[in-house]
């Protein structure tokens, strides 16, 4: 499993986390190249369906990043994200996903180092978990 290079999707909010990722870049923090960022205006824009869809389409993990609670550019979006995230995470665990396949975290625009750390740790965790158990190619349908 050591060769396993997971493919990870990050949803980052425009105002804090995407800027935090920029800050990490400007500061030249090095991190594993497994993540792809999709920019959304607010972490509250992330539809849980998108997360479930990503995980069932074959991505190994999803990370949603938003402003720290209380700092949302839209005042309260990330509180919605947090609630949805908790419910979704529990649902995914109940359905047999490892608890870290989906994560929510908070990174501010100034926290380049934190961004690098969160991403690096996340990649490491997913590497340790191995590929997601839902892999489309392995399964050709129950009744087919």
């Amino acid at each position: 499993m050591s060769d396993f290079e997971p493919k990870i999707l990050i949803f980052a909010c425009n105002w804090c986390s995407y800027a935090g990722a920029d800050m990490a870049g400007v500061s030249r923090y090095q991190m594993p190249p497994n993540c792809r960022i999709i920019r959304v205006m607010c972490s509250a824009r992330v539809r849980p369906e998108q997360v479930i869809s990503a995980l069932t389409q074959g991505l190994d993990a999803v990370l949603v990043l938003g402003c720290h609670p209380g700092d949302c550019h839209y005042t309260e979006g990330n509180y919605l994200t947090r609630r949805r995230g908790i419910m979704l995470k529990n649902l995914l665990e109940t359905m047999g996903f490892e608890k870290n396949r989906f994560q929510v975290n908070w990174v501010s625009a100034a926290e380049g180092a934190r961004f690098a750390q969160v991403v690096s740790e996340f990649v490491e965790e997913i590497k340790a978990l191995g590929p997601s158990h839902v892999s489309r190619d392995k399964d050709t349908g129950t009744h087919a």
Binding site: K7, L9, R36, I38, V40, M41, R45, R47, E49, Q50, S53, A54, Q57, G58, L59
Partner: peptide, 14 residues
């Protein structure tokens, strides 16, 4: 940032 636009990105990535 429509569902369709984001979904297409996710789909393409996956």
């Amino acid at each position: 940032f429509t569902d369709s636009q984001i979904f297409e990105m996710v789909r393409s990535l996956a």
